[in-house]
Simulated scan of single mutants.
Amino acid sequence: MDTILNNIHEYGYAVIEDALPEGVIERLLTDCLENQPDFKAAGIGRRQDSQLNEQIRKDKTLWLTGASTAQADFMALTDELRLEVNRNFFLGLFDYECHYATYEVGDFYKKHLDAFKGKSNRVFTTVCYLNTPDAGGELLIYAQDSDEVIARVAPKAGSLVVFESERFPHEVLVAGSARYSIAGWFRMNNSIVGTIDPPS
């Protein structure tokens, strides 16, 4: 926890190996694999603006609801992190949303931002890896407003990446073998175009 907070404060992002207990990761991977029939092709944009574009991304996703023990345990851990971030940075993070992400061989997600200034309530993006692929699927984090790669993260089971959603463009390189992860966002409770998101 201290390493995550210190790195966020100094760099705006953190990459932590073995961030979650091994048993939690194993249960999440099992849950992810068991639910593969319910996964959907991932879109770009949110809600009514979401659309499919396989030139930009080809992964499949399934939102976590806390319905299984594995999901509930993970969401409890992320809530502990949310509270610690609030205590240290006074950000008022309201909640956390997340989904499983499956990248099969050949899947990718081109360079993008998870939040645009003033148009989203996503504050921090997280990526938690559930397996260690044989090849590919690295996460590239770019410097703000630049093509300079400041971090190249190889997917490794149990690793957690946290970074500022509005600040760092990022992409997932082509997967050379199946890659399973959880992508999530810590959010503030903002009114966007007159709609409270997330609802209280």
Rank of each mutant, 00 (worst) to 15 (best):
K119C: 02
I44G: 03
L52H: 09
I4L: 15
R152A: 08
G194A: 05
F163I: 09
A151S: 15
D73M: 09
T61I: 15
E138F: 10
R179C: 08
Q55R: 12
V127E: 07
L91V: 06
S159F: 01
F124H: 01
A175P: 01
S50E: 13
R179F: 13
D114V: 06
T102M: 15
A76K: 11
F89M: 07
S191A: 03
R82N: 08
E164D: 11
H9Y: 13
A70E: 01
H9Q: 14
W185H: 03
N35T: 14
V149W: 10
V172C: 01
L83S: 07
Q144P: 13
V85Q: 02
A41F: 04
L93K: 05
Y13F: 14
C32G: 00
L160S: 02
E54K: 09
L77A: 06
P133V: 14
T61F: 08
I192F: 01
A70C: 00
Y180C: 08
Y103L: 06
L173M: 04
Y142V: 07
L29Q: 02
M188Y: 04
A154E: 15
Q144R: 11
R152Y: 04
Y180F: 10
T132S: 11
Q36A: 11
S68W: 14
E164L: 14
K58E: 07
S191F: 08
N190G: 07
A157H: 12
L64S: 05
I44R: 00
V149K: 06
T3R: 10
A101K: 01
S181C: 08
L33H: 02
C98G: 12
S200L: 04
